[in-house]
Design a binder for these strands. Sequence first.
RNA 1: GCCAGCUUGGCGGAAUUGGUAGACGCGCUCGACUCAAAAUCGAGUUCUUCGGAGUGCGGGUUCGAGUCCCGCAGCUGGUACCA
Length: 853
Amino acid sequence: MSDRKFPFPFDKFESKWQRIWDDEKTFKVSNPGEPGFDASKPKYYVLDMFPYPSGSGLHVGHPEGYTATDIVARYKRQMGFNVLHPMGWDSFGLPAEQYAIKTGQHPTVTTNANIDTFRRQLKMLGFSYDWDREVATTDPKYVRWTQWIFLKLYNSYYNTELQKARPIEELEAQGLSREDIDNQRLAYVADGMVNWSPDMGTVLANEEADEWRDKGHIVERRKLRQWMLRITAYAERLIDELEPLDWPEGIKLLQRNWIGKSQGAEVIFDCQGHDIVVYTTRPDTLFGATYMVLAPEHDLVDQISTPEQKEAIAAYQESCASKSDLERTELSKDKTGVFTGAYATNPVNGKLIPIWIADYVMTGYGTGAIMAVPAHDSRDFEFASKFELPIIQVVAPDKADTPWKDFVGYDGTMVNSDYLDGLSVTAAKAAMITWLGENGVGQGKTNYKLRDWLFSRQRYWGEPFPIVWNQKDGNHYAISESELPLLQPEMEDFQPSGDPRGPLVKATEWINYSEYCTRETNTMPQWAGSCWYYLRYLDPNNEEQFVAPEIQNYWMDGGVDLYVGGTEHAVLHLLYARFWHKVLFDYGLVSAPEPFYKLVNQGLILGADNQKMSKSRGNVVNPDDIVCEYGSDSLRLYEMFMGPLKEVKPWQTKGVEGVSRFLARVWRVAMMENQAGEWVINSKLSAEEPAGLSPVRKEVHKTIKKVGEDIESLSFNTAIAKMMECTNTMTAADSVCVSDYVLLLRALNPFAPHLAEELYSILAAAYPELEQVQISAMSWPSYNAEFLIENEKEIVIQVNGKLRDKLMLPVDISREDAEALALASARVQEFVAGLTIRKVVVVPGRLVNIVAN
RNA sequence: GCCAGCUUGGCGGAAUUGGUAGACGCGCUCGACUCAAAAUCGAGUUCUUCGGAGUGCGGGUUCGAGUCCCGCAGCUGGUACCA
């Protein structure tokens, strides 16, 4: 640090306090049963989304959420809660592996170096984490329990009657075959289409594929044997149990849409003795079905298509198969398809309708076949218009001026539909489902867009599956819990082999588990570790259990109280973690059905140019630079002062200067420079109590009230504005009482803890009557409500809604008196001259509005 | 296309149930201090033809609308033929 003189000497005290907090473990919190645990206090669990420790270190986006939770944590501690506020590392990830491929350096080395950087940077910002609870997903002691939870999933099935996970042994006891059992596991093996990158030698998650493709890598679809997690079994619970959570509505909606529940019916159509089952959400429109569409890959296509159409069908199928997903969406504007030559019988009226194939119907959803009702479905309408297929109206819109063609709304009445005629859409839907059931040609059916979770990756730097394959019977088996953690073998060559089984196939010794058994070479995705880290914080060093029940019961009663992180995890991480949590809940291993009771998404911080920060744009702000120049408290304060936590907002370094000036003013209320240029206690500070209620004291108590309320509602920007006002009042005053000043420091402490500690320690040394402790150990100050009572209030006088005068009136003035005084105002007289007063509106304590014309 | 969110001075943003629009901060202007500058302190800062007009645009409800209702535009994010 240079000798440069700063407006207040943060360079002299910030690192000092960080060291003290670290050495004294100021923010350590004990678990039930441990010495120092105070069972009389309520608990508060405030959680950050833990970072991926990238090579480039912290960016200014990280401290935004972390400062917010730190303010809440410090505030709640001052309010008398046992506060659990931990931090850790989501440390598996592709960059460390890519770096290893390039340099040959083991990912552990890079990962640990990055973690060290992140830890140093976070400590530099003075966050009040209990560092004794730090976890890293790459730590073997952590990997062990990630694998243990995976085995829980592997050894479970979903009991649809009980609606919960149960041990696989129950199925064994029922005498089910090995195959039937394997088909019900929550972790199972299946062939699936995945994103495979031959040049990187790995599969990619859907959400990663575009990113890498943009960087010039090849990504193609390939059918591979993969591990899947049966998240679809939990679809209903994942929707229902979302409702009561205190989450942003937008995020709930995103999850609901992702799960994509729809209610409709399966209907069986006959085609030359073949049953073709279609799924529809609109069984009410069955009389309007004028043709049928099968997905090009549908099993029955070859069997039903007529000889003369075979060639065209084959050509179309081939063109669809060769198209990438990207091309398919790009071409989505124009509908394509081919007639099979075959016809199906509509079960409700016996009519024959032509069967087509088209790529707007997909295999993966529903039954891969649809009945087309062009009158009341936009896609069918488009297709029918193009290929000149008949369009029959079956719904009449209730709104008179709405055309029936392409009317997809539910506010309509059935027509041309035999026994449904005259019914509302909703009633017809129910009536048709009943009819289908009675006639054995269909049934009500609920579908979900949610797919099972593709859980395996062909990577080195991830948790290996604790699974071996028996080469004799071809089955997979779990290794025993005593063999956990199962770590990746030491390898020197991380180069991709091009083998879709992943780089671990090169570890020939490691693979051979026993005479007949070889190890699974896939690894788990990065999500695995982040699915349960919030639970490991509770009991990070437990070697017997992933968390001890009594500790879990205490901290997770009602779930995590506040979870703050970015919207980028709105669906995946938050959905995956909820899923794992529910499996653990089914086994009674966690006490709340949901992990995160309250969720808040902090808004993205943009560059000064209002663009997303990125190296290529050159608008990235490095927190280290800001801390050097203005100090950690200034960075913390600025990030909170920029605007509401949830909003997107641009970075302005000039703004940091503003809050830095504010902190300097706080400093200078208590401190002044003597002739030698040293900071000494300001002579305007006085130990004497002021006579009566001073303006400063009044302002301080108002500030305490406002700041407390604002922290509760996470409105940190307005809390800071209020403290600025309070400080300005103190700066303007000739004398400030020490006890009033200390109240401000205690309110400021969660925001700017270094400054608050330093100033308080200086004052505590000079004024023995002050409590001789660290300010972090002090309670949240309470305000005296009597100080806030106003005798008089400024009342606005309006004429016809326009501001014409302001009067200071007693707060308890009667309506009549207020009205009379308002009318007596000279300004009012001026504006009502020549008009008749029609009405006078009096809002006590606010305004008087005189209506005249 | 669909869904969600947003739109307030030169800029970031404030505004209980509808009740003084522009708190607080940045920037800018002027003043004090200084040989000078920086820093600091103080005053001012929506526009204005000084009547008024103003919260993306057009309507509406109301004594009164940034806030509520209807219609439209723009920006940001999500999603992509899910039957």
